[in-house]
Nucleic acid binder design. Structure first.
Length: 441
RNA sequence: GGGGCCAUAGGGUAGCCUGGUAUCCUACAGGACUGGGGGUCCUGUGACCGGCGUUCAAAUCGCCGUGGCCCCA
């Protein structure tokens, strides 16, 4: 079916490992929950700005069996309107705040054109959405920073460089005060939005009447945030690290971390016995190890495991056994002979170095794809191959004109960076504001 | 929103113009020899996106549907 995806076992194994990192990063101060897929029309239609943003993409359930429903049910395109009515019931006083929850669920959006696996789906299968509630606008704002920090850590662990920017007002989440987004630059120079954090202010609090009693007894509206990551993170992971030989997976998320290829020459039983012993040793050190006893030739096995992105391959042959060593080959082609004695430590060290090498390589590509420009013409050229950093006065008019004339999208203002004054590429007004521009997936 | 191109074994393809026996590579299954970077030989398995129409006969021609790719707004 158009826009629907099937996770095969190998892909699912990667996904499990990737999402384990997300859970690990959120669990210390967030609680995992699960809310219903179906949202009654009356709840869904309460928040006007939100509806406007999603109404063309919502799937509706209109009958139960053969009887039409009195109240239509929306398949969640995102879960604010499913969750926030509950927040109204849960939150009574300042002591209930801050509240931080998340869920990892499927969401549905009726994309009318050009769906792409992992990137633009009608059923997003693995949407991690966090929702937080705070006593003040400022507290919510700092939660947005926390979210971006967690996501930054997440992408570092995937060895993926990224851009953080504040989306322009016309591209923020429907109902949000502002949206901060994380984009990864894909090998073709287009960007992929792989994480967003929204400051919702009190927009939804007003609509869903979410209030709390302050320490001196007044009722006050809460401030909220929400932030999300989907399986797009896996699209980025695959695209950025992959090369002509296939996938290259970071150690932490690789379904198979070590592949052992026995070289069956001479005393085959001996080679197999030693290989099995090594496999057992590494497994007990909690490594995910596969011993490849298929009857392909060794060369074919090497290519096979490289294509699957396995970080480290061990070759065990009669010559190695004689010397008490194994041949270790990393996914980035670094090849060494290491003693069997202390193999676990040696592999851990190589895994760390490989992770650093993956990150460095990705970072070099990333940096080469971002360029500062001064004019619309230069921005147009640069966005054909990567991301342009363009001086902008910050006005909405100039913003729209930039997008029209550069023929690319504005990602927004870079965060955590300051710039000297420069002339807006449209109106020439001096300002310290910059915006990233790129062609987007 | 508008337009163009395309759909053939699990994947990649030839055949389509000019209607008649569906090509090759790979993968997969069995066997033999092999084995430190994609092995060889033998024997098999497996496909014309769906519907309707034209015709003695449709992968091939026409219409509709579905799906994919690309361009423009």
């Amino acid at each position: 079916m158009k826009g629907m995806c099937v996770w095969f076992p190998f892909g699912y194994a990667i996904k499990k490992n990737v999402y384990a990192i997300i859970r690990e990063l959120l669990d210390p101060d967030h609680q995992e929950t699960q809310f219903p897929l179906l949202i009654p029309e009356n709840e869904f239609m309460k928040e006007a700005q939100h509806i406007k943003g999603f109404e063309e993409e919502v799937y509706w359930v209109t009958s139960g069996g053969i009887s039409p429903l009195d109240v239509k049910l929306a398949l969640r395109p995102t879960s604010e309107t499913a969750i926030y009515p509950m927040f109204k019931l849960w939150i009574r006083s300042h002591a209930d705040l801050p509240l931080r929850i998340y869920q990892i669920v499927n969401t549905f959006r009726y994309e009318t054109k050009h769906t792409r696996p992992l990137i633009r789906l009608r059923e997003i299968t693995s949407f991690k959405e966090a929702h937080t509630v705070h006593a003040s606008w400022e507290e919510a704002a700092s939660q947005v920073e926390v979210a971006i920090a967690r996501y930054s850590e997440f992408y570092r662990r995937l060895a993926l460089p990224f851009l953080v920017s504040r989306r322009p007002s016309w591209d923020k989440f429907p109902g949000a005060d502002y949206t901060t987004a994380i984009d990864v630059i894909m090998p073709d120079g287009k960007t992929l939005q792989v994480g967003t954090a929204h400051h919702l202010g009190s927009t939804f609090a007003k609509t869903y009447e979410i209030t709390y009693e302050t320490e001196n007894g007044e009722q006050k509206l809460v401030s909220q945030t929400c932030y999300g990551i989907s399986e797009r993170c896996i699209a980025a992971l695959i695209s950025v690290h992959g090369d002509a030989n296939g996938l290259a997976l970071p150690w932490e998320v690789a379904p198979t971390q070590v592949a052992i290829v026995p070289i069956l020459l001479g005393d085959k039983e001996k080679v197999l016995a030693v290989s099995r012993q090594l496999q057992a040793e590494l497994s007990s050190a909690r490594m995910r190890v596969q011993l490849d006893t298929s009857d392909d030739r060794p060369g074919a096995k090497f290519y096979k495991w490289e294509m699957k992105g396995v970080p480290i391959r061990l070759e065990v042959g009669p010559r190695d056994i004689e010397k008490g060593v194994v041949t270790l080959v990393r996914r980035d082609k670094v090849k060494k002979t290491v003693p069997m004695e202390g193999l676990v430590q040696a592999i851990n060290k190589e895994a760390e170095e490989l992770q650093a090498a993956l990150y460095t390589k990705a970072m070099n590509h990333h940096e080469a794809k971002v360029k500062e420009v001064v004019s619309i013409e230069d921005a147009k050229v640069q966005t054909q191959v990567g991301v342009a950093l363009v001086p902008w006065c910050g006005s909405v008019e100039c913003g729209h004109e930039l997008e029209d004339r550069v023929e690319a999208n504005m990602l927004g203002e870079p965060q955590y960076a300051t710039f000297p004054e420069a002339a807006c590429a449209v109106c020439g007004k001096m300002s310290t504001v910059r915006t990233y521009m790129a062609r987007q997936y």
